Amino acid sequence: MAHRLRPEGLDFVATAPVRLVFAREVSAPPEQVFRMLAEDVPGWAVWFPAVTSARPVDGGAGRDVRLKGGLRMRETVLAAKEPEMYAYRVDVTNAPGVRALVEEWRLAPAGAGTRLQWTFAADGTAAFRGFLRLARTGMGRSFRDAMTLLERRLTTPS
């Protein structure tokens, strides 16, 4: 059953009870990486293995995302500041125990490429918060795999 989450803003990224932060460099410029994050929403299913489908809604102001395991999320884009930040909050999900969730992607030049930092900021029941802390390693692995596939997609000629 889907349920509505607490509508948090960007400040939640710094104040959330659970914050998981992952970073990695890719060899494409920030502008190109930003376009993949913010403009090619369906492409997330190609380069982020946990995502089975993603589509923009409300003229690009939101996203419908489905993850492996049957999780569904309806999101609102909070910020799309090219080329340095892309952030969204989850408004509705079928994930149990979640009360609030905001994700932020920070991009910064790094040599000839981009350093990406993904912050997963969440609140929920004690069981959900504990689950996230235990899931940190798996989420980190998923992020690393996604960045490898994203880099390949950005640097391989079509």
Rank of each mutant, 00 (worst) to 15 (best):
R55T: 11
G60N: 11
L20D: 11
P49M: 09
W47Q: 08
G59D: 12
P30K: 02
G97C: 04
T155K: 12
A112Q: 10
L150Q: 07
D145P: 00
V46L: 13
T93P: 05
R66G: 10
R129Q: 13
M139Q: 12
V92N: 02
G69N: 12
A14C: 03
E151I: 08
F120M: 09
A38D: 10
L10S: 06
G9M: 06
P56L: 05
L37W: 01
A79H: 06
F143Q: 03
P96Q: 14
A38W: 02
T156N: 10
Y88R: 05
A127H: 03
G140D: 11
A108K: 12
P157H: 08
M147T: 15
R55D: 11
G138R: 14
V65M: 07
A121T: 10
V98R: 02
T93C: 02
A126Y: 04
A28T: 06
M139P: 07
P157Y: 05
L116S: 09
V46Y: 06
A110M: 10
P42S: 09
A122F: 02
A112D: 12
F22C: 01
S53D: 13
P109S: 14
S142W: 00
R63E: 13
V18S: 05
A45P: 06
R136W: 08
A61Y: 08
A50R: 11
R144C: 05
T156G: 11
R153M: 14
E31Q: 10
G62S: 07
E84R: 11
Q117K: 12
E151Y: 04
T114F: 07
L78E: 01
V51A: 09
L67I: 09
A38F: 02
T114L: 12
E104D: 08
W105V: 06
F48W: 14
L154S: 00
R24P: 04
K68R: 14
V41A: 01
M1T: 12
T76K: 06
V26F: 01
R106Y: 01
L132C: 03
A95Q: 07
G138V: 09
G124D: 00
R99F: 03
T155C: 13
E25V: 06
R144Y: 05
A61E: 15
T125R: 06
G60V: 09
A80T: 08
A126G: 03
D123H: 01
K81H: 10
D91V: 02
L154R: 04
M73A: 15
D145N: 14
V77P: 00
T52M: 10
E75T: 11
D145E: 15
V21H: 04
D145K: 12
V21W: 03
T137R: 14
S27T: 09
G69Q: 13
A80S: 14
M139K: 04
S158M: 08
V51G: 00
T119K: 07
R55P: 00
L67K: 02
E8Y: 01
R24K: 13
F12C: 02
D11Y: 07
A54H: 08
A14H: 12
A50N: 08
R144P: 03
A79K: 09
R89C: 03
A112N: 06
E84F: 04
P30W: 00
F22I: 00
A100T: 13
A135I: 05
K81C: 06
A28D: 03
E39V: 09
E84C: 06
A2T: 08
V46D: 09
A23C: 11
V18M: 02
T148S: 10
M1P: 11
M73Y: 01
P109H: 13
